[in-house]
């Protein structure tokens, strides 16, 4: 099938992945000056800045494809909640440090094979981003897996909290591997990544690391979905209120 590639499709695709990166980076940024140790504070901010960089590339590209004059800031800061298409996993709150580690690990284990696959996209911009982001995410995964093992295989208290976070967030992992119509169109065009095909790599990483962390892998039960259609959990509105505050209060403000 070689249908005409719809630029709007690619723009939507770029925004979707930009949203994952931006919202996850915001959750990490909430640890700024509040992480358990000064060194971990800097580590988390480095991860967040990598993600912001990925989001900027994707939003800027989407803006160019749209040709409606939206720049990266307009896309990042002025949309309504329903227009954000990030996975539910990345918006889940920082209940404690174990949640931050679990959320990061479960997402990193997905985004590494995702960006590696995106590096072979027929779209040159997405392919270049995939190559760059895969290098960054490889380190993210190493960092989050290290913490998962350290806390899982740590004290009784850290083990209990780490298991609780994994159990709680597990419901949000199924959504990552669901291909929707947009995915299917772009997969057929050789541009998008087949998300269902990433599941086995994710399973391998997650099982190996959970085992080393002496944590139980939760059973795959009901999985929450809706993020990719803009239906978010109740936390998203509060997150956006903070994220968008400056642009809402002072429209078009520049640094």
């Amino acid at each position: 099938m070689s249908a005409v590639i719809d630029k709007a499709d690619i723009a939507s695709y770029a925004i979707r992945w930009g949203d994952d990166a931006l919202i996850l980076s915001h959750r990490l940024a909430e640890w700024c000056a509040d992480a358990p140790e000064l060194e971990e504070d800097m580590a988390l901010m480095n991860l967040a800045l990598d993600l912001v960089g990925q989001a900027r590339t994707l939003y800027t590209y989407a803006g160019e494809l749209e040709g409606r004059g939206r720049d990266e800031d307009a896309i990042a800061f002025t949309r309504e909640e329903r227009d954000y298409k990030n996975a539910l996993l990345v918006e889940q709150p920082n209940e404690d440090f174990a949640y931050a580690v679990a959320r990061q690990f479960l997402y990193d284990a997905f985004s590494l094979p995702f960006y590696q696959a995106l590096a072979s996209s027929k779209d040159a911009t997405l392919a270049a981003l995939g190559e760059k982001a895969a290098k960054e995410v490889r380190y993210h995964l190493k960092h989050s897996a290290d913490w998962l093992i350290r806390l899982g295989d740590g004290t009784d208290e850290s083990h209990r909290r780490m298991q609780a976070a994994i159990d709680e967030l597990w419901t949000y992992t199924g959504e990552l591997f669901v291909n929707d119509d947009l995915d299917r169109r772009l997969i057929a065009a050789g541009i998008g990544v087949d998300l269902a095909a990433l599941k086995s790599a994710w399973n391998d990483t997650v099982s190996t690391v959970l085992k080393e962390a002496t944590l139980q892998r939760p059973a795959d039960g009901w999985m929450a979905t809706g993020g990719r259609e803009g239906r978010h959990s109740e936390y998203m509105g509060y997150l956006l209120a903070e994220l968008q505050y400056m642009q809402r209060a002072y429209p078009n403000m520049k640094w």
Binding site: E37, L38, E39, E40, M42, A43, N46, K142, H143, D146, R150
Partner: peptide, 20 residues
């Protein structure tokens, strides 16, 4: 210098603090 619980994490912390 950096604080870390073990050498492995010291290396990661050093990477994050000193090679930005």
């Amino acid at each position: 210098s950096v604080h870390a619980p073990d050498p492995k994490m010291a290396l990661e912390n050093a990477r994050d603090a000193y090679t930005r």
